[in-house]
Design a protein around this nucleic acid. Structure first.
Length: 137
DNA sequence: GCCAACGTTGGC
DNA sequence: GCCAACGTTGGC
């Protein structure tokens, strides 16, 4: 099982929107960045990811699960772009803010801190555990 | 709304 | 294949 982090600007696609899709979930589409796409290609069904609100919020608000592996992104005809499907699993009991993450030495190597523009990124098992604890899980 | 960081594009 | 110009992201 691998862990990931998915970023979204809440006014485009929010955690509420994600939850509204329910168990059926939906495509994590619109990614037009090779690095982010390559991470999605490595995802397996059952992998978990954090759902992060960028621009507004700046916090991890929930947990999603990968429910379909990489396939063509239906929002483009360009064959370069693939995406996975994800569904909402649960809210973070207490959202974990970027500020808190930056203030935590054990999380200083997170992509969220080091590669701030990467919209889909890997999270280590250790980072996952720390953030979950901070979020009240 | 600004602007720094950084990824992408395209001319050479 | 380099690199300048350009566009986008995302924190502040």
């Amino acid at each position: 099982m691998q862990y990931w982090l998915f970023k979204s600007e809440p006014y485009k696609w929010s955690w509420e929107d994600q939850k509204a899709e329910g168990a059926a979930g939906g495509e994590w589409d619109g990614i037009r960045n090779y690095q982010a796409r390559n991470f999605m290609r490595r995802m397996k069904v059952g992998d978990h990811g954090f759902f992060y609100h960028s621009n507004e919020g700046l916090e991890i608000v929930g947990i999603v699960e990968v429910i379909a592996e990489s396939h063509p992104d239906s929002t483009t005809d360009d064959p370069r772009w693939d995406c996975v499907d994800v569904k909402a699993v649960r809210d973070m009991p207490r959202p974990v803010t970027l500020k808190e993450i930056k203030a935590t030495p054990e999380l200083s190597e997170m992509s969220l801190v080091k590669s701030m523009r990467l919209s889909v990124q890997p999270v280590t098992a250790q980072e996952w555990a720390i953030v979950c604890r901070m979020g009240g899980l």
